[in-house]
Nucleic acid binder design. Structure first.
Length: 494
RNA sequence: GGCCCCAUCGUCUAGCGGUCUAGGACGCUGGCCUCUCACGCCGGAAACAUGGGUUCGAGUCCCAUUGGGGUCACCA
């Protein structure tokens, strides 16, 4: 394969959801697979729709995933459009600027070339005229669209006007889609579309072709929603005498409801995912698997990023649209969490403990961490699980103490006896606690399950915790004993 | 509506004419393990949208139907 250069070209109109980032991943994977470059280009030709902060969001999320564009907006470019911030990356590159609103001159130049060559023309039809035309067409049940009225009018360049591409109506056109194979239009049905708006800014159709060519993009990877407008782009390439890149259209990713992914889907954006306690490598892995599989009979679905890079190919892309299965992503995240080494787990959990205001001495948390690590799917599940280690009054789910025929009197008995035994232990170790408490259960004639449930609630307040003896050992004898004592008192007033 | 794209378990998928009484994973479910919850292990239910071809043979190739989706802007 000739030199591969791909790009991620979002328009800064809001927050990208994971489906959008998936396209970025694929473009990045393809470039890295072939030792090429991955560029980031900002498509902000529609100023009114650009939202402040959106570029920062994109850059920061890519960074979270550990994806560094080889070329992209420099800090100076960001400053020029007033979207720089403290700590903004300074990417840059030889084909800049990488922000379309900074490339206006070039688009106008190409538009003029197209006019000079007879492939485009100026049009001064007003929105009102177009509107009326459209209404008449609808009334006649015709296909609505611009009639081409100005094609032969030689509209002056002085007055306000747009530039339109002449689209041959009867011509057939086809191209070889990178994931779908040959796609053919027996006849192009599109009307003469606008390339340059009356304010002098380009539409997507012009800007994308010019930039992909100028930036030497070898593979254009984008969502299927662009498939229908590909003929326009092909015509522009042809008119300019440029070789079109390989164009591949990816399937969309829908929510569980089968509808487009949206904010309501839960962790629809990477930021939501991060806040919920997903690991970036797990999200990257999972999202890459929506619409892509290694093929060749492989069942593998856990990939390091290097494996993803070495195995990725356009052939593995499934052209059918997919559904974002959050439940499976959680499973995969749990797997990744379990595979973290404990020191890393502790480090990544810290911000979540802080956010939940769960403050535990480092040593204590380090001791319980391995036990917690294998019990959570999301980092946000950690704080509630270790909360009981905090030095603060406990709220107990007292009712949960009474299982399998255990009543207040029996619970009280279990607690009292356990307390006595724990007090006498030579050392407050897991094995000794284990022996002591099992001994109490046997002595009093209870099964360990229900008996331990009483102790669990008494000491941790909860029904779901890390293993009991370990939890006790980590908490320390003094606090275990005082909590049992508190629980005994609570039972007395019932 | 015109044009274009798509179609294997609920979901993500393997399958690129015979080895498919269709494999894996998540989820669901029965069991084991077990101090709760997880993990782990063993088992189960669950799919080739329909109809025509082509072929000795079709989940795999072709066509149609049906059903989804996209697109027809001075938005991307």
């Amino acid at each position: 394969m000739s030199h591969v250069r791909t790009r991620f070209a979002p328009s800064p109109t809001g927050f990208q959801h994971l489906g959008g980032f998936r396209t970025a991943f694929f473009a990045w994977l393809l470039a890295k697979r072939h030792g090429g470059e991955f560029l980031l280009r900002i498509e902000d030709t529609d100023r009114e729709r650009s939202v402040p902060g959106a570029i920062r969001f994109i850059l920061e999320e890519l960074a979270w995933f550990g994806i560094q564009p080889d070329e992209g907006p420099s800090k100076a470019e960001l400053e020029q459009i007033g979207e720089s911030w403290e700590g903004a990356p300074d990417i840059g590159g030889p084909c800049g600027p990488y922000i379309q609103s900074l490339r206006m001159v070039r688009y106008r130049e190409v538009a003029e070339e197209l006019i000079a060559k007879g492939f485009a023309y100026r049009c001064d039809c007003t929105p009102q005229m177009l509107e009326r035309e459209r209404n008449e067409q609808m009334a006649r049940k015709e296909l609505p669209g611009y009639s081409g009225y100005c094609r032969t009018r030689n509209v002056s360049a002085d007055a306000p006007h747009v530039v339109r591409l002449k689209i041959p109506q009867k011509r057939a056109i086809s191209f070889n889609d990178g994931v779908r194979g040959k796609v053919t239009w027996e006849q192009i049905q599109l009307r003469d579309t606008v390339l340059l708006k009356s304010d002098g800014s380009p539409t997507y159709h012009l800007a994308v072709v010019v930039d992909d060519h100028d930036m030497k993009i070898s593979h254009v990877l984008r969502g299927v929603e662009w498939l229908s407008s590909t003929p326009i782009h092909l015509l522009v390439y042809e008119a300019l005498g440029w070789e079109p890149p390989i164009i591949a259209h990816f399937p969309v990713v829908n929510g569980p409801d089968g509808k487009k992914l949206s904010k309501r889907t839960g962790a629809a954006t990477s930021r939501d995912a991060r806040e919920k306690g997903f690991l970036p490598e797990a999200v990257l892995n999972f999202v890459s698997l929506i619409g892509w599989a290694p093929g060749e009979g492989s069942d593998q679905e856990i990939f390091t990023r290097d494996e993803l890079i070495s195995k990725f190919s356009l052939e593995g892309i499934n052209p059918a649209s997919g559904v974002f299965d959050m439940i499976k992503m959680e499973w995969m995240n749990g797997l990744y969490i379990r595979n973290l080494d404990t020191a890393d787990f502790i480090k990544r959990t810290a911000p979540f403990l802080k956010a939940a205001e769960v403050v535990i001495p480092d040593e204590m948390f380090a001791a319980i961490a391995p036990l917690v690590q294998e019990r959570v799917k999301l980092l946000t599940e950690v704080p509630p699980m270790v909360e009981f280690l905090m030095d603060k009054p406990l709220e107990r789910q007292i009712d949960a103490m009474f299982q399998k025929g255990i009543d207040v009197a029996k619970a009280s008995e279990i607690l009292t006896r356990s307390k006595a035994c724990l007090e006498q232990l030579k050392e407050f170790s897991v094995t000794q606690i284990d022996q002591a408490l099992r001994g109490v259960a046997v002595e009093l004639g209870f099964k360990p399950g229900p008996a331990f449930a009483v102790l669990r609630v008494a000491v941790t307040g909860k029904t779901v915790t890390p293993p009991l003896f370990e939890s006790f050992a980590v908490l320390g004898r003094d606090r275990v004993l005082s909590r049992i004592a508190e629980a005994i008192v609570l039972l007395k007033v019932m």
